[in-house]
Simulated scan of single mutants.
Amino acid sequence: MNNNKPPLIVLVGPTAVGKTAASLAIARQFGCEIISGDSMQVYRGMDIGTAKLPLAEREGIPHHLIDIKDPSEPFSAADFQTACEQAIRDIQRRGNIPFIVGGTGLYVESVCYGFKFQPTGGDPAFREAMQALADSEGAEALHGRLAAVDPFTAAKLHPNDVRRVIRALEIRETTGAPASEQLGEARGDRKESPYNLVLLGFHMERARLYARIEERVDAMLAAGLLDEVRGLLAAGLPSSAVSMQALGYKEMAAYLECRLSYEDAVSLLKRDTRRFAKRQLSWFRHMQDLIWIDADEDSKNSKLLQSIYAIIAGKLKISLQ
């Protein structure tokens, strides 16, 4: 490893696995500033459903890329990469270590390995045609079209993730190259990080993770998730907005618009969150430098934290006090 590269610590893992509590301890130990690697925590007013850590609970540790956009504004992986790289430079200038914590795989990986996103203005007519195809022939047919021209990207996307499937097709249509080629994935090349990278991933036994997910959803509902979604809709944010497709918001909006019963909305939210966690783990498993940490123990457990500290110190050549 080239230790002349600037250090970057990253902690990924599925939702509800315990990243937040551990991240505060790690940040204190190594003098880090935390950068949210979550695609939805960028939105103001979307707090409960995105599991934002309240300001009072951040223990004075700076957190970045939280509450930087209105829910009506678009925010892409390329936007995240640009904003995150700027935050990293600012943190480095202050003499601190940047620490990305989150579960949005593409966003985090794009920074870890400097993915090159080809700029494109997009093709609205093409998007509309692909949406019409999905509506008439089904999401599976649309996904099959992507698999034919970009099997690598198709393998990472669920057929029901119509928006991202259309986006990948649009990239292929407008640039002539598959999205996976832009990200250096198609040839299976080993990606080189511009950082002295410490990439950690939390995992735990599936039944325990699913139980934690159920508990988290119940806690969000008790904390006022429904009222949060009601407020966003009342402020004029349409339920079709990209931000409102986030877990919790989509299901509660369906209830408020009388498209689902409350019981069905909650059941769907729990099911979709379990499926989301499974997709997150599938993405993380292909990340080449990931060091897996068994988080079945409480993430505040001293023994677990000491083992994490030792990994980071070893990678960054830092002496533990």
Rank of each mutant, 00 (worst) to 15 (best):
M1T: 15
P7I: 14
L8G: 03
G13V: 10
T15W: 00
T20P: 05
T20R: 09
A21C: 14
G31Y: 07
E33H: 15
Y43F: 14
I48P: 06
I48F: 06
T50Y: 10
K52L: 05
P54Y: 10
A56W: 11
I68E: 04
D70T: 11
D70Y: 07
P71Q: 11
E73R: 04
D79P: 02
Q81H: 01
T82W: 01
E85G: 00
Q86M: 05
I88M: 00
R89D: 11
G95K: 00
P98D: 05
I100C: 08
V101L: 10
V101G: 07
G105N: 09
F115K: 01
Q118C: 13
A125H: 11
M130R: 15
L133T: 12
E137M: 12
A139M: 06
L146Q: 06
A147W: 03
A147V: 06
F152Y: 13
L157W: 08
P159C: 08
D161T: 10
R163I: 08
R163V: 13
I166P: 01
E173H: 15
R190A: 15
K191W: 04
L200V: 02
D218H: 10
A219H: 07
A223F: 10
G224E: 05
S239E: 14
M244K: 05
Y249I: 12
C258W: 10
R259I: 07
Y262C: 09
V266Y: 12
R275H: 10
F276V: 01
R279S: 14
R279I: 09
R285M: 04
R285K: 08
D294R: 06
K303T: 14
S307M: 10
Y309T: 01
Y309A: 01
I311Y: 02
I311C: 02
L316A: 08
